[in-house]
């Protein structure tokens, strides 16, 4: 009896499955019930930037992280590993995009000094940990769809940063261990050219993104990205990030450059690999790093 019932249930299930769409069509109102997430085009949420904001690898973009449209929300988590000859940095965090307008992000950066820590008497593997809380608001334009206008998409943002080595940094004359960066980003997709351009102006007191403290007054720093869309899933680009170099006597700081490849197999995962020229870091010159970042989200 149970067996027959199971069979009957399966048949009924199949019948409903077959008739369902037709019935749904008859009953359907002229307007769809839209999904709550995932409505933006592939890759248009960018990847996770070093401090957790939606952007390229080094610099924030005006795009709002995630795949939510103006009716939707989006969110993602990321892990990034950067390894140079003498140091490594792990950073992980999460971002949320609300209505393609607001972006909130958190990230933790763990800068491991490896053998340099021992050389400085701090101990091998001495690590500076910095937490970053970010907020970004889109203020004008649509980088992707306004293809008949040159006006880029603009966003303003702030990143509050706090690292756990205040005493050491004050001893080194590197100032305090917390600060806020403010930035404005302009991003434009030149779709007919399959080219994405971004410029960011950041006002900051941070040394090496804040991991080496915050010194003096705000200084404007330029950052830029250029990327070529190879197809829907692959993006190739390069970036530049100007640095303040305010504690040159202790630890000279150089501008950063990178070249990256990002892969977006679908709207739930992206992988970015890059080669980054960091220049001098603490007491080691010519640091070149491999960069690997994984993002999962919606």
């Amino acid at each position: 009896m149970g067996h027959v019932c199971t069979k009957l249930a399966v048949v009924m299930g199949l019948a409903v499955a077959a008739a369902g769409p037709a019935l749904a069509q008859l009953a359907a109102p002229p307007v769809t019930t839209d999904a709550l997430y995932g409505g933006k085009l592939l890759a248009t949420g960018g990847v996770s930037q070093l401090e957790g904001a939606g952007g390229g690898g080094l610099t924030p973009w005006a795009l709002i992280s995630g795949y939510g449209t103006d009716n939707q929300i989006g969110g993602n988590a990321h892990f990034t590993h950067i390894k140079s000859q003498d140091f490594h940095l792990n950073t992980y965090g999460a971002a949320m995009g609300l209505y393609d307008r607001f972006e909130f992000s958190v990230a933790r950066q763990e800068f491991d000094t490896e053998n340099v820590g021992a050389a400085l008497g701090l101990g091998r593997g001495f690590t500076i940990t910095q937490d970053v809380i970010g907020v970004k608001v889109k203020i004008a334009g649509d980088a992707v769809l306004d293809q008949d206008r040159l006006l880029p998409q603009f966003a303003i943002g702030a990143q509050y940063k706090h690292n756990n080595r205040g005493a050491l940094l004050r001893t080194l004359g590197a100032g305090g261990n917390d600060g806020v960066d403010f930035y404005v980003s302009a991003t434009k997709l030149l779709l007919a050219e399959s080219l994405l351009l971004n410029g960011t102006l950041r006002f900051t007191k941070a040394n090496q993104t804040g991991i080496l403290g915050f010194t003096g007054d705000y200084k404007p720093m330029l950052e830029g990205s250029a990327a070529v869309l190879l197809n829907r899933h692959w993006v190739l680009g390069a970036e530049y990030r100007m640095k303040t170099n305010r504690i040159a006597a202790v630890a000279r700081e150089d501008d950063w450059y990178d070249a990256f490849v990002a892969w977006f197999p679908n709207k739930h995962i992206s992988v970015t690999v890059a080669y980054v020229r960091l220049g001098n870091v603490v007491i080691r010159d010519n640091q070149n790093a491999a960069y690997l970042s994984l993002q999962v989200g919606f």
């Binding site: 009716n71 649509d142 992707v144 293809q147 779709l191 007919a192 399959s194 190879l230």
Partner: peptide, 22 residues
């Protein structure tokens, strides 16, 4: 080709201002 696709999409994309209303 992808680049040609994007040229057409670039011509269509601005129509979102006439089409999207919700």
């Amino acid at each position: 080709a992808f680049r040609a696709q994007n040229r057409l999409l670039a011509l269509l994309a601005p129509m979102h201002r006439d089409i999207v209303e919700a």
